[in-house]
Every structure is written in C-alpha cells, then in structure tokens.
Design a protein around this nucleic acid. Structure first.
Lengths: 346, 346
DNA sequence: GCGCTTCCGGTAAGCGCTTTCGCTACCGTA
DNA sequence: TACGGTAGCGAAAGCGCTTACCGGAAGCGC
C-alpha cells in the first residue's frame, strides 16, 4: 500500500476544496490565485470552503506546475554574526508579512561557495534571492556568482543584493561613503590629526567604500589622505585586535582609531584595554554599523549606524516587485551615533 | 507557448540523464538514490552522466513524488537575537554539511504564531523541524504546537526541540539547572548572601529551570531559597534594565544580581552604570548563555556558558537519524565563565 | 431570430520525479 | 532438461497543482 487511506490523509487538497465548493479544480485554482475568469460569487464560495477546510496549497505541486513560489533565498556570510543576523531579521520579518518563507545559506566569505549556494537555491526554485554581504573590488572575483545570478534572473527569478553595486540587479545600497565621512568628520572636528584605520580585507568593496569616505573627509579638512595609516586584517573581532596591536606598535602617536565595522572595533577596544590604553582619554575609537551591542561595550562605542534590519526588509520588498528595465538602487541613510569612545585628543 | 523550447531549458532533467546513459528513468532514479536493484556498473555510468551534465534533481518534483526532502525548518523567537542566531548558525552549518537547506521562521514568542509556523513548514513538506527556544511551564500553553508537531511526526516528519522537554520528540537539553547551580555556587562561594534574581517571564520553562537550579544551590549552602528576591520582566535587555531598577529600589542591600540570560544581564549592567553602582565593587552581576559579546561588556560578564552553536548542530544531526521508539534526550554540558563582573561582596 | 462577441467554467495535458508492479534473463538444483 | 528463485531493469501510474484550450451560455446589434 503506497499511500495512506483517505481517512488518514492530513492535509486537504485542491480537489477536496473544489469538490466541496461544487466547481472544477481549474476554477478553484483560479479563484484562490485571484485570477480573473471566475465570477466573484464563485470565487468567494471557493475561498470560504478553503478557509473552512484549512486548505494550504502544496508548494511543491504548485511550483512544479509552473505556478509562483513563495520561498526566498538569503545568502549571508555567517548567520551567527550580528551584522547579518540583524539583516536576516529584517528579511525574515518582511517575508513573513507577505506569506513568504526564507531559506538561509552560509557562504563563509568564500566566493565560490556563494556560487554553489546560488545553484542550490536555483535548484530549489526559489522565487527570489537576497544576497547580503560585501562584494569585491575586483568584479572578476564575483564573476561566477554573477553568472549564476544572471541565469537565475533570465529564468524569471528576482535578485536583490545588499551592497555589491557591481552586480546587474536591484540593490539596497548602504551609505558606506556618507557614513564614513560622518565618522571621520566627527573625529577631525574633535581635533584629531593622527588617526589610523583598522580595515577589513582590501578586496572587499565595503572596505574600499568606507576607506574612500574617510579619505574624502580627511581631504575636505585640508589634510593629506596619503598620510593616513591603514592596517588590513580579517573583518572580525580578532582581526580588530591584531590590527590594533600593529597600529600601537607602528604608529605610537595615534590619537584615534577608526575601525571599519563594529566587530573590529570591539577587538580594538579589547586590545587597548589589555595594553592599558585608556579610551577615549588616550585614544578615541569608532566603529561602523551600530550592531545591538555597540551601546554596551566599554566604553559605549561611537559608531556610524546603518539600518541593517530595515535594509533586509527593503531588499525583500524590492524582490517582490517585478523586475524593472534597469536595476533599481535603494540607497539607505546613515546616522552618526556619538557615545563614549570618542573625545578630543589629549 | 507554455514552455521554453528545449534549447533554452537550463537545467537537465532526469530523463536527459537516463537517455544519455541508455537506461530508463526508473533505473536512473534508483542509481542516483543509491538504492539497490541496479548493478554497480550501470549505477556508475548513470552517476557519471549526471555529473557530466551537472544534473541536480528538482526538489519539488522529488518531494511531490513522495521521495525524501532535504529542507529543514527552524523555528526561533527572533533571528536577530544573538542567542538564537548562534543556534541558527549551528543548525545551518550542520545542515550544509549534509546537503540540506534550512528554512527559518520567526515566532516572536507567541505560542499560536508558533503553531501557525509549524503549519507552514508542514505545508512546505520539510523533512525535519527544529524548534529552538524555551517551552512553557504549563504544557497547556503549547498544546496547539504540540498537536501540530505530533501530526507532523505521524506523517513521518522528524522533530527535534532545544529545551522543551514536555514535547514528545527528540530533544537537546541545555543544562539549565546545572549551569544555574554553578553560577549561584560561584557567588555563594565568593561570600554573597544578599542576592537577587532578574528573571524572564515565569511561565517559560527555561526561567523555571534556571531559577530552580539557583534555589537548589542556595539550599545546598544551608540558606533559605524563599528569602531570595526574584523580579520577573521580559527576557530582554530592556527587561533587565527595568528589573534591575526594581531590585535596587526594593532590596537596597543586594550584593549580587543573577540575570537569567545575557541579554538581561546586559540591561542590568547598563542600569547599574547609569545609577552609579560599581560592578563588581558594589554589586556583582552574572548572566547566562555566554553570547559572543559577553566578553566585551563593561565589565566583562561572568556567565554560565551554554554551547549554543553546538546545540543547533546536535539538534540537526539528531533530526537526521531515524526516529527512535522513545524520544531521545541529548543533554548538553555547561561551563562557568568567570570574568570581571563578580567579586566578593564589600 | 441570427450570428457575433464576451464571459465562465470545465477538460486534460503536463511539471519532474519516485515507486509499484511485472517482465526477462540467468542462476542453481534435481 | 525442467523448474523455482532472484536480480536487474522498464513501463506506467501517480504526487497535487497550473494553465492552454475549448465549449456553452448569455448578451448584443442588426
């Protein structure tokens, strides 16, 4: 016996709804999809029966039959990272509001893993893919993902990226440059002249953009951006620690350290504490993103806020809209959150 | 024209593989699923052809035809919360290793939303559901989810819960009681006698268990657990702030505050700082879970560590194993992480 | 009253897979 | 040589849905 007897069958099917409403499956399908060709009277009856039976369409059958799907894919580097989990929260929340589910994949900052994950999502016939996380300065590094995403779009899939303006698709663009300018201007305004940047990997476009904003602000203050020391390290707390160590050793007179994200800033604070450097008395420190915990660090972190959760939600909403002739770009705002980790230099 | 012409068709189908390998679809299907009834010679040929063509089975067709699925559902209260995002990270990582995808849903600490989400997952025919997050002291409160999960299991689905021992399914059990005992014993050992607990909602079983562990430790030290003040508030940073305020106002002599999770502890620290209470000099503070940021708070938080990521991974692995006659229970260990927020009372 | 369009709704052909069932060798045994 | 048993494979029936296509019934102008 291959299938359960009807009595045990848990979920009602479309044929049950149709039968009970006295119409054909075709009509029932049309009614539930709110497509025209069905009188409002009949449609209402079908909907009532469906509600009464607690009918939920089988998404696999629906997808297989060529209907629309309502599962979105979300690619993040690491869901355990607060930056991404806040974005994910926005995506999942917005998706739920529209009755969509979201499938999450880790890519672990590996471009070829990304392409593989996109392939998996395509195989799963997701309706949309949201890609979060920095792109690469060199477009060649993301050529494989780009091709995969293009293919997906050709097949009618929707793609929205957060950052990554290189890709040919709709994008939510965090205001990395503006945020960087704000943060740098804040420090310059406090009187800092000997600043250093603790940066993530230089091939990430997020790093390049933020660095660019900082340099622009430095120039605008009549200083030479070439004189600004930059230390590159992994985009993590540990990276921040090691980079801060290098700053201290190589540039002893530094009065302010700009970390390019909050995770690195956390590492910077940790190392400065360890070395007995007082923040902000001896050295001011700034971060980027304003993840939840930034306010609870010691001292509370001055940082440039990016609305991560909102970015996630916006990305999803964008994915819901039909594809436009030319890629849409949704710039986000930014905020400068001044807390206790910055002060005028001694 | 309903379908694209074959030339445009992107993904190869099973029939393509079968044709090229010179076998029937049935054989190809069996070969790829490594089921017997196919000679090793033929199976190898089919696998080669599949690899050559880059064939990936359509999961929807597969699921619809009654095959196995490889999508797991993960229910969390809020993916933006570090506790859950670390668990999610474990689940997603383990799932990826086995070629599974994971669908994430928010439930926002609402039991009926949970049931609804499980329904959605069931409609999606996920192969397994992992439920993270505290259950309720009163089983009646989760009766609806429980029924939904039971139905799912009856239909062959696998369910694993993290915590929630009330439910009839496999469970990963965080050692809430042991962890609570450690933390309380640590404070008692330091000499604290006037302690207060900042707790999450009393109807959560996690809260009850942790409270129970603390009380047990207090008794073991020959003290009366009835004398231990407990303030209930939401299980969040804000909840911790407000509860800490109440502790300060109502129990001015308190020398140690035990928060029942790190989020609350963060709030407690924040309020104490605001009120000018020195930690640990005036008051010691402890947390629970050891989320990533606990080490970077001011002061670094003494807390009971639960291996969240590992719990997530374990839960998924458990879900992969066939259901046992009786529910399996996987207790986790715990660690006491002593940092700077605890010291002997003044 | 006729043929025309319009609107509704039904019929049936798939979507891409798994699995039951049955057939055809081919083996060993008597 | 005849026969039951078994291993390997194919044919075909679905899984639950969507949608192209078609047919009938009104509604319309002439």
């Amino acid at each position: 016996m291959r299938r359960e007897p009807a009595a045990v069958r848990s979920q009602p099917r479309l044929v049950d709804v149709a039968g009970r409403a006295g119409v054909s499956m075709a009509t029932a399908s049309r009614a539930l999809a709110s497509r025209d060709g069905v009188s409002e009277l009949v449609a209402a009856r079908v909907r009532d029966v469906a509600a009464e039976l607690g009918y939920v369409a089988n998404p696999h059958a629906r997808t297989l039959a060529g209907g629309t799907t309502s599962v979105a894919g979300l690619l993040v580097y690491e869901i355990g990272d607060p930056y991404f989990s806040e974005i994910a929260s926005g995506v999942v929340g917005a998706a739920a509001e529209h009755g969509w589910s979201v499938q999450i994949s880790h890519t672990e900052r590996d471009s070829s893993a990304e392409a593989a994950q996109v392939r998996v999502m395509r195989a799963h016939r997701v309706g949309a893919i949201v890609v979060a996380g920095s792109g690469y300065v060199d477009p060649a590094m993301e050529a494989e993902v780009a091709r995969e995403l293009d293919d997906f779009q050709v097949g009618g899939g929707r793609v929205v990226v957060i950052g990554r303006h290189h890709l040919r698709c709709d994008a939510v663009l965090p205001d990395n440059i503006g945020a960087a300018e704000s943060v740098a201007a804040h420090l310059l305004g406090l009187g800092h002249r000997r600043m250093a940047v603790v940066a993530g990997p230089s091939h990430l476009s997020t790093v390049a953009d933020r660095l660019g904003g900082i340099r622009a602000a430095v120039s605008a203050h009549g200083l030479d951006p070439e004189g600004l020391p930059v230390v590159y390290a992994p985009f993590t707390r540990e990276g921040g620690r090691s980079a801060a160590g290098q700053v201290l050793d190589r540039h002893p007179g530094t009065t302010a350290i700009l970390a390019l994200n909050d995770a690195m800033a956390t590492g910077v604070l940790s190392l400065l504490r360890e070395r007995g450097v007082a923040v902000p008395h001896d050295v001011s420190v700034t971060g980027f993103d304003d993840i939840q915990v930034a306010q609870d660090l010691a001292p509370a972190l001055t940082t440039a806020r990016l609305p991560m959760s909102e970015m996630g939600a916006t990305a999803f909403e964008l994915a819901l809209r039909p594809r436009a002739a030319r890629p849409r770009r949704k710039p986000t705002g930014h905020g400068l959150i001044v807390r206790d980790s910055t002060a005028p230099p001694r």
